[in-house]
Design a protein around this nucleic acid. Structure first.
Length: 109
DNA sequence: AACATGACGGACA
DNA sequence: GTGTCCGCCATGT
């Protein structure tokens, strides 16, 4: 398995409840700043088998990127149950809910 | 091998 | 904010 994949998986698992990360962020920290699409692929293939909190991964715009309605709703629900506010269009306030493993600290507000 | 696709990102008009 | 375009790269056809 490529180190990128391992890193990405570890990062995704490391996302705390009530926080989200976006694909590019994960890819960057996993060692490939251009690997957003690979992160997508990982989620597709691993989300069922591994216990990855895939619902905590969104796109850089701060929105749920899923097109399929059922899955979209599932992610939205999962996030809301963790305390993440999701607007109607799947929008999320990144300044509140984005998790950055480098800063990691408590920023307040 | 060539071409299309995707739960994407960033730059620019 | 919206729409277009181009870059990325593993997979599928």
């Amino acid at each position: 398995m490529q180190p990128f994949t391992e890193n990405a998986i570890r990062l995704i698992k490391n996302i705390p409840e009530g926080k989200v990360m976006y694909y590019g962020q994960i890819a960057k920290h996993a060692g490939n700043p251009r690997g957003a699409r690979q992160v997508v692929r990982i989620l597709h293939s691993m989300s069922g088998k591994h216990q990855l909190p895939w619902h905590r991964v969104i796109n850089a715009k701060g929105e749920i990127g899923i097109k399929e309605e059922a899955q979209f709703q599932l992610q939205k629900l999962s996030l809301e149950l963790e305390g993440v506010e999701v607007e109607k269009g799947g929008k999320i306030n990144l300044s509140k809910f984005l998790y950055d493993p480098e800063e990691d600290g408590e920023w307040n507000q």
